[in-house]
Design a protein around this nucleic acid. Structure first.
Lengths: 289, 289
DNA sequence: AGAAGGACCAGTGGTCCGTA
DNA sequence: AGAAGGACCAGTGGTCCGTA
């Protein structure tokens, strides 16, 4: 096969055990579209790859170059599928692949990420699964992408984002981290929040839910309650202040449902909420960050 | 005339001298559409006004009630024109007003605000003009509207804006402050910034530009330079940090042009800007706020 | 069924340009 | 001409729902 597997971000690979190769690795689709991958703390061995004819058939990506990363060819990146032979890059020009390339776009379809399972701290997921340490690691990666976007913005004298915005997700995608996307990160933000704010509780919850054989959705739901308890203990139920006071959490938007739960809890625990809010500025506990 | 002039916000009236009445006063167009004006720290004497038939001809404002302020009738409010007789409310039902009511909507057109002129500190504008103290006062009003929006949001457990957003402008409009609008406030933000950050310099500039008979546009342009000088003196050229460090200024977005000017100045004064930015976090002067 | 993520949508920041 | 502001537009935050 002329398609070469290579890991562009060795430090970022997924944590599931599965043969020698990690499915999250991105297959190089030819040369020239990994420009500035070096920005992601990895050396880039792909920059001198040969140009592939297919890239020229593909219309240039119309999205403007963004944040110093040249637009990639944006061909569907042909991420390696698990237990599925790599297609040769030329194959789809001469034969039909039975479950990819169905869309008329001409590229192979991107493989979805493996679903998360509830794992204990330190546990590596087996099979076509990803573990929760990997999930939390994605949040750290996003933070690194944000820092890069911020540095570039400062360098250019442009507006500098303080949160993980669409711009950051776009940057991550262009940088090759195609496994990062907004809906996923938003979906599990509060789980990451618990991990940041009270790792002990977070770890205990993971062990309990793994023990009971609960699925990820159940674990995710269960993460809300201890967070509300933390907000309650702060005395203000001000989940925004709690997020903003934590250096790793402050870059994430508070999820709507968590805010609503904190508000509901505050209302039920203190029906005279008007005064409680006015008073909140004066008296809540200091956060340990 | 059955149309009554009344000042809904006595403390907020414009500063131009012009007969007994101030043009910024809003004409009550009938009863019922000043709900919750009390939220703007004024007692509301208009709430018991009679309903006017014209309001019923007007389609109900389709914009949903926002932030606890019932939607106003949204008839064009018929702000008093200067040196122009007040129309009787009933007039447009029986006769045509020659320069209002030209649209098909059936309401009288809103009068534009009088243009600003360069005034000295404390000086009240004469004629159909507004002075710069009044301009800066509008920024204080916006801050008060923001505070109200924030209080309501906290009360409801909703996202709480930290800046003067579209939501705040909408709130201001619904509260009757029809003379506040986004393009205007954005246009003069940097002038207000200078007023906040270095009132001495701001005052001197006003006096100089008034003396030389310059128009508002020229004065406005001239406000950029001392701001860039302030950013330069801070050593970081970080105009965002300067805005955010000031309690009254921090709620305003840094205007694009000011950011660009600071960036250009930094680049020309320190071509090796990459290191300068990296170092900026460690060493800039403390701001006095 | 449980879960990942493309893609949509209401409302945003930003400011142009038809208006007076 | 100088100036005020309605209204537009590209890109946002938020998340639904067609997909696998």
């Amino acid at each position: 096969s002329r398609r070469h597997r290579h890991n562009h971000q060795p430090q970022l690979m997924r944590l599931s055990e599965e043969g020698g190769m990690h499915e999250k690795e991105v297959v190089g689709s030819g040369g020239g579209n990994w420009e500035l991958m070096g920005a992601i703390t990895t050396t880039n061995q792909d920059q001198q790859r040969k140009k592939h004819r297919k890239q020229q058939l593909q219309a240039r990506n119309s999205v403007q170059n963004m944040m110093a990363i040249p637009s990639s060819q944006h061909r569907k990146l042909g991420q390696v599928r698990n237990n599925h032979n790599n297609m040769d890059d030329d194959m789809d020009e001469e034969e039909v692949d039975d479950d990819e390339d169905a869309g008329g776009g001409g590229g192979s379809e991107r493989q979805r990420e493996h679903p998360f399972i509830v794992t204990e701290p330190g546990e590596v997921a087996r099979g076509k699964k990803n573990g929760l340490d990997y999930l939390f690691h994605l949040y750290e990666q996003c933070r690194e992408f944000l820092v890069q976007v911020q540095n570039i913005a400062k360098e250019r004298g442009e507006k500098c984002p303080t949160k993980v915005t669409n711009q950051v997700f776009r940057f991550a995608k262009k940088a090759g981290a195609t496994y990062i996307n907004k809906p996923k990160m938003r979906h599990y933000v509060h789980c990451y929040a618990l991990h940041c704010l009270d790792e002990e509780t977070s770890n205990a919850l993971r062990r309990a839910y793994k023990e009971r054989g609960e699925n990820v959705g159940a674990w995710r739901q269960a993460c809300y309650k201890p967070l509300v308890a933390i907000a309650s203990r702060q005395g203000s139920w001000d989940i925004d202040a709690i997020f903003n006071s934590h250096p790793r959490l402050s870059i994430w938007y508070v999820p709507t449902k968590l805010r609503q739960l904190c508000h509901a809890e505050r209302s039920s625990s203190n029906p005279n909420s008007a005064t409680s809010i006015s008073a909140a500025g004066g008296g809540p506990h200091h956060l340990p960050f």
